[in-house]
Amino acid sequence: MPKKEVLLEINHLKAYFPVKRKSMKEEKKVVKAVDDISLEIYRGETLGIVGESGSGKSTFGRTILKLVEPTEGEILYKGQQIQHLKGSNLQKYRNQMQMIFQDPFASLNPRMRIGAIIEEPMALQLTLTKEQRKKRVKELLQKVGLAEDAMHKYLHEFSGGQRQRIGIARALAINPEFIIADEPVSALDVSVQSQVLNLLMDLQDEFQLTYLFISHDLSVVKHISDRVAVLYLGRIVEIGTKKELYANPLHPYTQALLSAIPVVNFDEPKQAIPLQGELPSPMNPPVGCVFHTRCPFVMGKCHQVRPTMQEMNEHQRVACFLYDK
């Protein structure tokens, strides 16, 4: 495999939110939604981010776009630092990336016509005449599999899957290179999910897009991703190529997650690894390894020291003491 170009590099990214205190006496608390995440995304690939709800995966996506201010850390886009950008410089950066949102009922303005929704980003960020924009709206609608006359309609005339297609068309309107898809199919029916996923993959081929695909659904991530990162309480516990990670999960959390995917195979009954307890509060994460409260292989060291990411092989990195050499 040829060495790939790094499109986006993230170093030690943190996003903390202060918690409102009930009284002045209480100590200041923060929610560590994103806690020291480092990874890189290569041009043209799809990086899947999985994690349970509350693991900070959506916040991570939003921090990259600076919709959430990063508390610490670096975001490098094509080698350029962008975490300090503001105003028009920030907009220039954002124009190269777009976001597809989870809930197609909330992410589109119900008071605007479809044409206006898709046209708006072009009108603001591209220098096109009105006719050119209209033409492009029609093209985009066609690309995402909707009829041209949809542009004159309002949202309530469309189903969830169709709305998500409209959201995708809007995201594509200003020719971005990088798209953050924040649970784009979790609000949809299973039958519609695969249609939208396939549409996303087709568009990726056509426009050479790079995706950051956030989801809690392991099967969906497996379908679309090239590489996968597993998030737990705002930290990456394991990252690797899809093949390696699904075939040979290293971190106990990944193992437990994968064992929970339902499979129809009666010859080889799977052993599900049950996880004890609940996801700890990100306001007060466990000291040491964040996963030690629920880990079946917990050791003494896990209670005190935080494991760092270590390279296991060419394709896989994991943060776990089980693999200390």
């Binding site: 954002r94 976001m99 909330a106 992410s107 603001l124 309107a173 200003i174």
Partner: peptide, 25 residues
């Protein structure tokens, strides 16, 4: 709301977000 985030992302100015996007809703 996500539609407001989306509007911010494409660079709609705050005044327009307030009165063209949110107010009608």
């Amino acid at each position: 709301a996500e539609y407001v985030l989306a509007a911010k992302l494409i660079g709609v100015n705050p005044f327009k977000i307030m009165f063209r996007h949110i107010l009608p809703n």
